[in-house]
Design a protein around this nucleic acid. Structure first.
Length: 422
RNA sequence: GGAGGGAUGGCCGAGUGGUUAAAGGCGACGGGCUGUAAACCCGUUCUCUUUUGAGUACACAGGUUCAAAUCCUGUUCCCUCCA
């Protein structure tokens, strides 16, 4: 028997739960399926990579993937997993966010495939013209109050201080998405994170009642790291998928720094590795963990898919220079790119003549005071352009600036600061 | 309403008149080891400073004293027991 999408998800650990009959349905025919994306920001972060990959797998198995951006639902706010009422986004912001997500999804999915081209829809398109009266008459009728009140997300919120009518109605909107796509696109499957289970079953319930149709749901586990923390957050904030918000270098580093367990898990989640290749890689990694084959594979694969091969080559060069290599091999321009998000400061050429290293450290914000800067140097925690500094008295003009205009100050092993001379 | 206990640095927690900027632990930061890891080991951790030095600090406000986190008075907050 040929491998099915469900089999694929299963070995990857991406199958959390499915409605009855979903597996048979996917095995028997090519289906149209959708996943919703929340447009609360103009970019998606790595947490959204999982549903994106689910769409990719769908398409690879010959099914037709639909990405749904929640232009309308985003204006309401999903109460699932939230403990507080959400702030509502205004229309202009949402429009911008929807456009950003659209361009991002385009990197992963084939919109020109002859048999099963991917599609993108925005539920604002069908909710916009819908009148309140017709919602109450045609949709609301199919929602028994008892069912809605029994939803886990609602119960939790009611006991934890309340939920507004607006957010309470969210599940109706989301369920209607499914009904609409079932009618217009013949869509018979919705996927999502396991936190979407309630919304998905509400949708299939509505399709059954309102259109007498049988539709299915498949949910994936929520990604956490091995200690159960939320995935995709670093000390500097979320890791985004757009180069403007998270530089390719930092993106690459995020994946490269995953622990062994997580790296192996994430390879199954976020790359298209085959099961055979995976087993081979895993065996190799376990035999020689210090080589970190798993992390390198993961970082390389995901970075290439999100930012392109060219960007990957650049960040690999920078990584090699920064860790083990010589930072002075990089041009000032390359350094600027690597340290796009690094804190920085600037001094005029004249000021730099006068300034010492201590002043420079305070200028770029590495330390709050010269006293602290002095202690850090004495503790051996400071290097400039890759050279460890042990003399707090050193003047800047005794050190060589890269291309006469840039100093890379490093605190500890990974915190970088840029000092520009202007 | 009655009786008692307490408030110390990011957190926990010692300290009851004089080398106490305040033990110890946690956290954070730096170093070593290493795989840009985990574990472990070492160092730093009130503020400013040209390492000497100065200024603030033990709930808040006053007071006693040459000298107070430590004693006294008042205020605020917290806890326990009794009603």
């Amino acid at each position: 028997m040929a491998k099915t999408l469900i089999d694929e998800l299963r070995w990857r650990g991406l199958l959390f739960d499915q409605t009855e009959g979903a597996e048979a349905h996917l095995a028997e025919e090519k289906v149209t399926a959708y996943i919703g994306f929340d447009p609360t920001s103009d970019s998606l972060h790595v947490g959204s990579l999982l549903p994106i990959m689910a769409l990719v797998h769908l398409q690879r198995y010959g099914h037709t993937p639909i990405g749904l951006v929640g232009g309308a639902t985003g204006m309401i706010g999903d109460p699932s997993g939230k403990s507080k009422e959400r702030n509502l986004l205004d229309e202009a912001t949402l429009r911008k966010n929807v456009a950003g997500i659209r361009s991002l999804l385009a990197k992963f999915l084939d919109f020109n495939a002859s048999a099963n081209p991917a599609k993108l829809v925005n539920n604002y398109d069908w909710f916009g013209p819908l009148s309140f009266i017709s919602v109450l008459r045609d949709i609301g009728k199919h929602f028994p109050m008892s069912t809605m009140l029994n939803k886990e997300s609602v119960k939790r919120r009611v006991s934890a201080g309340g939920i507004s009518y607006t957010e309470f109605s969210y599940m109706i909107l989301q369920a209607y998405d499914f009904l609409h796509l079932f009618r217009e696109e013949g869509c018979t499957l919705q996927m999502g994170g396991s936190d979407q289970w309630g919304n998905i079953t509400a949708g299939s319930e509505l399709v059954r009642r309102a259109a007498d149709g049988k539709v299915h749901g498949v949910v994936m586990p929520l990604v956490t790291n091995s200690s159960g923390e939320k995935f995709g957050k670093t000390v500097d904030g979320a890791v985004w998928l757009s180069a403007e918000k998270t530089s390719p270098y930092k993106f690459y580093q995020f994946w490269l720094n995953q622990s062994d367990d997580n790296a192996l898990q994430y390879i199954k989640f976020f790359t298209l590795i085959t099961e055979e290749e995976y087993q081979a890689l895993k065996a190799k990694h376990l035999a020689e963990p210090h080589l970190r084959e798993a992390q390198k594979y993961l970082a390389g694969d995901v970075t290439a898919r999100v930012h392109g091969c060219e960007a990957l080559a650049r960040v690999e060069k920078s990584t090699a220079a920064l860790f083990g290599g010589d930072i002075t091999e990089l041009s000032a321009q390359e350094i600027e790119e690597v340290f796009q998000e690094a804190p920085s400061g600037q001094l005029s050429q004249a000021e730099a003549q006068e300034a010492g290293l201590l002043d420079a450290m305070v200028t770029v914000g590495m330390t709050k005071s010269k006293g602290e800067a002095r202690r850090l140097i004495q503790g051996g925690g400071v290097s400039v352009n890759g050279q460890k500094q042990d003399n707090p008295q050193v003047r800047l003009n005794e050190l060589n600036a890269i291309d006469d205009r840039l100093f890379v100050l490093r605190k500890g092993s990974k915190k970088y600061f840029l000092l520009r001379l202007v």
